[in-house]
Amino acid sequence: MALYSEKVMDHFRNPRNVGSIENADGVGEVGNEKCGDIMRIYLKIDNDVVTDVKFETFGCASAIASSSMATELIKGKNLSEVMHLTNKAVTEALDGLPAHKLHCSVLAEEAIRAAIEDYFHKNQIEYIS
């Protein structure tokens, strides 16, 4: 028995969408160094659609896999959908996480929301969070 599911290990070992986007339309960062997890998400947005997404993460395997999975889940999606991505959806897509690691998937949800809010803010778009 391993600590993590095969899906988590796959995304941890081969994270998708790693890197940064120059002149991103939205950038979101959550977490702090003291707690040991930081995620930064970069979004490229065209006509309310996430056309590209990249991430950088400092943290445990759960944090890295959650960021990777979250970027996969939102790529090509409409902002209205992306806004409603939950950590539950990320966790389910990863075939579950150990209970004490759920907080790391919450960070992925929060980082994406922060990136969209940054986009709204930059473009002075009114939104209800």
Partner: peptide, 28 residues
Amino acid sequence: EGIEGESLLLLLDDRGICASSGSACTSG
């Protein structure tokens, strides 16, 4: 510096090395 212990341990495990860490994320 700039490393989270659990990730390091799991990648070492992939290379067949068993080690441990004092990171919070390894202890629960």
